[in-house]
Amino acid sequence: MSANATGSSSSLDYRQQSPAVAERFKKLKDRPVVLEVRDLTRVFPTAKGGEVTALRGLNFHVHRRELMCILGPSGCGKSTLIRLLAGLDEPSSGEVRLDGKPAVGPSPDRGMVFQGYTLFPWLTVKRNVMFGLRMGGMESDEASREALQWLDLVGLAKFKDAYPHQLSGGMKQRVAIARALANNPRILLMDEPFGALDAQTRAQMQTHLLEIWRNVDVTILFITHDLDEAIYLADRILVLKAHPGEVQELIEVSVPRPRHPAQSNSPEFLATKRRLEELIHPRAEPTSQPMEKLPIIRLTHAGDDVE
């Protein structure tokens, strides 16, 4: 995306919302809170006997049917946060509440899609999707019927008898989404789910996810380090900063819905992106050190220049 936006859009404030968008946000905030995070802190012991604060004093909440993105540079604690939310790790202090009740330990009401494809390689696609239902005690026939419906939703009914190793990366993640959704989770947690996919597949998957979200009663918390992905998907973007991981800003994305890829040149999109860039890659602040020039000796023949 180029920075040479038109004169009028470059002056647009990313917080400025059209009446329709403002109305949407008002409705969104009227919906009940599904997930509430209170003073969440996670401190890891280091190998040398010290401590590293991965997350400090996080507070935010997610409303029902909201799609919230969490954005931050690599190493700012995004994975740590989502693992705490999923109950796969315990906070050093603070708490996570789901529908007002403390959420401790992993549970099918907080579904998760991981970046690495975590499909069970020994199960067929259909049986992968049935897994949660069967664990919950559902009869095989009924689970099978439900699994097929979910596979239909993600467009993979044809591959129900294939094994994961026979699928492409994008298809695996679609199965993983279907598998998580089959449990009817209150919230779907996604940790950079499309991070390992090529650009084209990733764009398809984003559109696909929005489609699913529109049609399924589910709240989504989506982690990414890709600014465009966050703006394209999110209602609100929670921007984290690193060392320690803290909330930097909660941005309401002013790009109207329904979203489509062409909006990436719209003034709202560009304004939001500029703001995110300021937050994530601050321009040479006086306090931060300038990037040192690497002390590289010239190892090519004189005159053999590439630039």
Binding site: L88, S107, P108, G111, W122, M135
Partner: peptide, 23 residues
Amino acid sequence: ALIEAAQTLGARRRQLLLHVIVP
């Protein structure tokens, strides 16, 4: 990672052993 995935899908201790670790 597979154990964690199974936990978020609702598998409990014995189920984890029989339906994830062993297979």
